[in-house]
């Protein structure tokens, strides 16, 4: 099936392609901007009109996770102001999506107006694969990627957003791609934000187990919807002799579109 035919299915699925506000997490902006660019490639190919609200910085997750709720709350206010009137907000990170949808309401709970704003924005923020599959109703992009690919289920994707099948639905429609289910796909990669540096020895052991599973499955790539998990997995893989590479789902699809 080609891209055109999936576009034809849009009106039935979700109306005209919406205007999308890009929510680019701070470390994607600064450390892995290629993931943001690939996100743009894919969404534009699907006909979305994109906007990057320039006032965005950081959603506050690092502060929130370390326990600094006051600091996190200030960043939440900025985020809610920046994205308050966007009708669809798309983020290439399950973790940051979960911060906004799952944790903002708790962070805002002492202030009813703020909590209402948080809930409103939370309803409009989508993780990338969720946006494609659930909001647009698209699984077929017409991409080709002839490799063995495993999925790593990020913890926030899986347990906060309950998105497990969405990335797989997209991958199953990529021509030539062999989707490989690995042992321990749902096992944490050991990143955990500051945990990865505060308790590096535990974090590394967790990542090693993920790397073992990937190498045992002899995949070419591991994909995920969280740049931070991929950073961790790539960091450990790079120091091992194996040849498994990491690729964000948006990047995989963007490459698959380019070569289709």
């Amino acid at each position: 099936m080609s891209l055109e035919s999936s576009q034809e299915r849009w009106p039935a699925a979700a109306g005209a392609p919406p205007e999308v506000a890009l929510f680019i997490p701070c470390f994607v902006d600064q450390v892995t901007p290629e993931i943001g660019r690939d996100l743009v490639t894919v969404l534009e190919r699907l006909g979305c009109r994109l906007r990057f609200p320039p006032d965005q910085t950081c959603c506050g997750q690092p502060a929130f996770n370390a326990g600094y709720r006051q600091e996190a709350r200030a960043l939440m206010r900025r985020f809610l102001d920046t994205f308050g009137n966007s009708e669809a907000i798309v983020c290439p990170s399950g973790s940051c999506t979960a911060m906004v949808r799952g944790f903002y309401p708790e962070l805002a709970q002492s202030d009813p107006a703020l909590a209402a704003a948080a809930r409103r924005v939370g309803e409009r923020v989508y993780e990338f694969s969720e946006f494609l599959v659930r909001r647009l109703g698209i699984t077929e992009l017409g991409a080709a990627f002839p490799h063995r690919v495993a999925v790593h289920d990020g913890c926030h994707m899986l347990r906060e957003l309950h998105l497990k099948d969405e990335p797989r639905q997209l991958l199953r429609r990529v021509r030539g791609l062999e989707l490989v289910e690995i042992d321990d796909a749902e096992r944490c990669c050991g990143f955990g934000g500051s945990f990865s540096v505060n308790y590096g020895m535990i974090s590394e052991a967790m990542a090693a187990r993920k790397a073992d599973a990937l190498e045992a499955a002899e995949v070419d790539y591991v994909t995920a919807c969280d740049p931070s998990c991929l950073l961790q997995i790539a960091g450990v893989l790079a120091r091992r002799p194996g040849r498994v590479r990491t690729l964000h789902l948006a990047s995989l699809l963007a490459r698959g579109l380019a070569s289709a």
């Binding site: 450390v31 901007p33 743009v40 960091g235 790079a238």
Partner: peptide
């Protein structure tokens, strides 16, 4: 070191996403 003691760090990119976006648009 807290990161690189246990795993490789990514190469810092020359251009941020926002700078790329601005340039492009």
């Amino acid at each position: 070191r807290p990161w690189t003691r246990y795993r490789q760090a990514p190469e810092p990119p020359p251009q941020s996403f926002r700078a790329w976006w601005r340039q492009r648009n």
